[in-house]
Amino acid sequence: MNQIAAVLGGLQQKISHGSTFIQRKYNEIGQAKFNLPEPVTAASLAAFEAEFNQKLPSEYQTFLELHDGANLFILDDGLGLVLHSLDQVIEATNEAIEYELIHEDFDHYWVIGEINEGYLLINREFAKTEDTPYMYWVFHELSTEEANPIGQNFGTFLEYSIIAQGDVFWEFKDFSIEKDNYFVDGDPPKEDVKPPLPIKFVDSVRVEIEYPISKTDSDYEYTVSIYEGKSGKERLMSRYEGGSHFNKLIEDVRNRLSDRQYHYSLINVFQTESRFWENEEETGDSLIINESPQKQGLSYDGYRAFANQLPRPLPGWK
């Protein structure tokens, strides 16, 4: 597997586990959004080469052949790593020339995306041989005359950007106490300062749902038991009576598991019908034994997989 595919595969695994709450410098935190589109088309590649009479650097083309652009680690303020589709690269580069973002004496750049209030650039001259790092960056309000070298080619740039959660990692080394007002001005009142919440990393969680005796009487409720820990060493985290409507019950389970204090790598859900059907109050008879209670077991690779495909009730229930 090549470097680009391996890096993106790791990112997709992280997303599937629900690990999308991020923290960047200046304490920018939030639930990040991601978008990894379909691969670039042959027509777009041909149009690009015809427009600029130059082939793409190999690492960048490898990325496009997996995903034609991407939005990675985007927070509510819109900041993060944006990689344009190849058609957008043509459009953004031509607009940059028109509006003189690309300086006439420094016109050897493609605009391939944006990050942290600046444009991502590829130096076309350096990209011809790939022996010299070709990734550059410039503030939105400046021109390519003042573009700063990142010091890497596309593959390593992408990997480091993912490690830095969409931040400008090449600037980290330049921060200092002397010149940067890094922290929030002023000390908050002591009564407003809250200690950080503890975080619990749990290998797995098991959710057991026991169905009520009756399918129709709203007085009967589901019983939910949630266990956490490694198989064979689990402990009961909570047990409670759920509502008579299955979908509302599952929504409650989802909300409990979404607590940001808990991070699960595996979620197992077991559903079991009661051994009895009707009770004496409904039939006038003793409890009727359910000879073949339905059972179902489901496994999810992390919270995100569980939230995207919630369990459904057993046949005959709702």
Results as ranks from 00 to 15, higher is better:
Leu197Gly: 07
Phe201Tyr: 15
Val193Leu: 09
Tyr211Cys: 07
Lys194Tyr: 08
Glu171Ile: 12
Gly151Ser: 04
Gly166His: 04
Lys190Glu: 14
Arg206His: 10
Asp187Thr: 14
Gln165Val: 10
Tyr211Pro: 02
Trp170Glu: 06
Thr223Ile: 13
Phe172Asp: 13
Lys233Val: 02
Ile162Asp: 08
Lys200Trp: 11
Asp192Tyr: 12
Tyr211Ser: 00
Val168Pro: 08
Glu191Thr: 11
Glu228Ile: 10
Pro188Leu: 02
Lys190Ile: 12
Gln152Arg: 13
Phe157Val: 08
Glu159Leu: 04
Thr156Arg: 11
Lys215Val: 00
Gln165Asp: 11
Phe183Lys: 06
Tyr220Ser: 13
Phe169Glu: 00
Phe169Ile: 01
Thr216Val: 14
Ile199Lys: 12
Gly229Cys: 01
Gly155Tyr: 00
Ile177Gly: 00
Asp192Phe: 06
Ala164Pro: 02
Arg235Ala: 09
Ser231Pro: 07
Asp167Trp: 04
Asn153Tyr: 03
Glu159Arg: 05
Val193Ala: 06
Asp180Gly: 09
Tyr211Trp: 01
Pro198Asn: 06
Phe172Pro: 04
Glu171Val: 13
Lys215Cys: 01
Trp170Pro: 02
Tyr211Gly: 01
Tyr222Ser: 04
Tyr220Phe: 14
Gly151Pro: 00
Gly186Val: 02
Asp174Cys: 08
Ser225Gly: 07
Val224Leu: 02
Gly229Ala: 05
Val168Phe: 13
Pro188Gly: 05
Asp180Leu: 06
Val205Trp: 01
Ile163His: 09
Ser225Asp: 09
Asp217Val: 05
Ser161Gly: 01
Lys215Tyr: 05
Phe183Cys: 05
Arg235Val: 07
Lys215Glu: 08
Tyr160His: 14
Tyr227Arg: 04
Ile209Gln: 01
Asp167Arg: 04
Val202Trp: 07
Tyr160Pro: 07
Phe175Asn: 06
Glu234Trp: 06
Asn181Ile: 07
Glu234Asp: 07
Val224Cys: 03
Glu221Met: 14
Gly155Glu: 05
Leu236Asp: 05
Gly166Ser: 07
Val207Gln: 03
Gly155Gln: 03
Ile163Gln: 11
Val202Asp: 04
Tyr211Ile: 03
Phe183His: 12
Phe175Asp: 03
Tyr211Phe: 11
Glu221Arg: 14
Ser231Glu: 14
Ile162Pro: 09
Pro196Trp: 05
Val224Asn: 03
Phe183Thr: 02
Ile209Lys: 02
Lys200Val: 15
